[in-house]
Write a protein that binds this DNA or RNA. Structure first.
Lengths: 340, 340
DNA sequence: GACTGGCACTCGCTACAGTCGAGTGCCAGA
DNA sequence: TCTGGCACTCGACTGTAGCGAGTGCCAGTC
């Protein structure tokens, strides 16, 4: 039952070699490439134990060993040594992110950067509206009975919706509405708005009340109920790396999962402060991703979290490197957001 | 040289059968499935001619025939009969598109619908800013030296940019700026703005001129120079349909091409009124898409074109059906936009 | 008791030969 | 001009054999 240090070293060596070569690794090759200080036969005995415990398995009787999901899990939890980023990578990150003009721009650059550095599929969630505060509400009359509502959040997100008013409004009415709404809502967290919005309607003058009611229902509906989350995706071509060995030959389920925003949000969006989450193969709740691993973390200015980002790749993945990159990118993005 | 009617019928039959079965089609199977009124031997003679002319080819000596890109081209140009949409499809389109609340929503629904109906990868370009008119410019002070510029276009597009001002502005200054800019720019086409913007700066009071200059340079830079085009993509999982036979085994080049916005824009965005463009295999200028075909068209309210949409799929594609669907979706989207 | 060398065994991979059959090209005849 | 017939080609599939990487086990050594 107990795994002594050498057995753990063997497991680590197997994971590292398999990730590097993509081929089942045998006892002989292992002792050649790593200084284990024992003979192949000894390693074989250790391997037999590791296999009994479910950390590795043999694709065929006469083949080398391959880590199982459980093996990767042990590796990630206890065996992997943190891989510091190379200076080149650091430079790449900085170069990539300076000069972003826009939240859109930041997100797009980030997701491309992440895909490029990890050589995997990258996902970045836009700063969540639920975690943003209202910075300003703008009402733009499109016609006498139509209003465009533009909400600017402190995270830089801007959302707009067209509102069909119950009756015509004068320019002064619109100004009043704007002032009322801003007075009440600016600075408040979006998840806290429902009671505020209600108060807003109640406090409006009878004259403006119908318009305010429509306006607030649209606000609630768009921004809170179906909480407008957005995602950016990049690097799907990286799925074809490593031939068809990863993902057991079919990209179909992975591509399908990546098209489902809801699925991705569940994956990436449930970030907690300063934690990097690693989901390996089977641990994944989404069936289509059972053959994949996900590394994700939260990001935001300072110590707060406003959104998540991460990568999706084969279980046969360079976990230490990927984790380091994901963390580093998240930190840089956080700093960038803090500057605004 | 001349291809008589029967030879053309044979080509059409080959294309239709090959698209349906995905297998090289032989002379015997052809006469069985289509009423050609002649024997297999005759068909073989015709096939020999078609092969000489480069319309079909044999994967192996003892296999049936497969259309070449040139064969598909002839088929599309002269042989395919228009396939009217099924009532179910029409209903699907309507059901899918009513209830869209937003331009974003319209585009997302459209791209998903198109992917679903054609079972291919769908691409939809957001209404091009170059073809939009300014409906309103809103300036929102973020701090005394920072302004958020929100541009609302008549196509429903909303773009925003953060502007770093050369010096602090009062609320009244902002109001003045806003009024000046709107007076001058509202209603004008974005591609025509550069001279207008210049005039705007010249006509500003000396007091406001530096701010206006910054503002206008940002406007020009964002909206005109690097003309902000946007795209939505859906259905990449459909690439895995038809196994690995299409795209000669590797999705890599296709996925890479689909990640390049610039590439896609060139493909989809150069739409001309009431034309459906079909690019087959080799005809494609983008190397990565040499194994694929693209069907695209423009859309917009009324007879104008504000953007493009289309699908990317294998050369072995149901051209008549795809063309019909792409056209129909474009028309519905146009109607939807006209309502705003 | 832990490690090691040796050895028999398993089994996937590759090469090769043989068979089958779909599909062809060609030709003589209607 | 079309057709039936016929010889031919060649990919797909099957079965056999040899190779070799890798294993499990066991007896022997430190």
């Amino acid at each position: 039952m107990g795994l002594d240090d050498r057995k753990l070293a063997v497991l680590r060596a197997i994971v590292e070699d398999y990730v590097a070569t993509q081929e089942p690794v045998g006892s002989k090759a292992l002792v050649e490439r790593h200084q284990l200080g024992v003979s192949p036969a000894t390693v074989r005995n250790d391997m037999a134990v590791l296999e009994d415990e479910g950390y590795i398995r043999q694709p065929h009787t006469s083949a080398g060993r391959v880590p199982t999901d459980r093996g990767y899990r042990l590796f990630v939890d206890r065996l992997s040594r943190v891989k510091p980023l190379s200076p080149a990578e650091r430079r790449a990150i900085e170069r990539f992110l300076v000069g972003a003009v826009d939240l859109d721009d930041v997100v797009h650059r980030t997701v491309r950067l992440l895909a490029q550095l990890t050589r995997q599929v990258a996902v970045v969630q836009y700063p969540s509206l639920a975690r943003s505060k209202v910075r300003h509400l703008e009402l733009v009359p499109i016609s006498t009975t139509r209003l465009m509502v533009v909400m600017i959040a402190d995270t830089g997100r801007v959302e707009q919706r067209l509102v069909e008013l119950p009756g015509p409004l004068s320019a002064d009415d619109v100004t009043d509405l704007r002032r009322l709404a801003n007075d009440k809502l600016v600075g408040s967290r979006l998840s806290d708005t429902p009671p505020l919005v209600q108060a807003l309607v109640d406090e409006s003058s009878p004259h403006l009340r119908p318009a305010m009611a429509t306006l607030s229902s649209v606000l609630l509906e768009t921004l809170v109920e179906r909480h407008e989350e957005r995602l950016a995706l990049a690097g799907t071509a990286n799925l074809t790396r490593g031939g068809l060995l990863d993902f057991q030959g079919s990209l179909r389920p992975i591509l399908e999962a990546l098209e489902e925003e809801v699925v991705l949000l569940k994956l990436i969006g449930e970030a907690e402060p300063s934690t990097t989450r690693v989901l390996i193969g089977d641990e994944n709740e989404i069936d289509n991703l059972r053959a994949a691993s996900v590394v994700s973390t939260g990001y935001g200015p300072g110590r707060t979290i406003v959104g998540g980002l991460g990568v999706v790749g084969p279980t046969r993945m360079d976990y230490p490197g990927t984790i380091a990159t994901v963390r580093a990118v998240a930190r840089y993005v956080g700093e960038l957001l803090a500057q605004n």
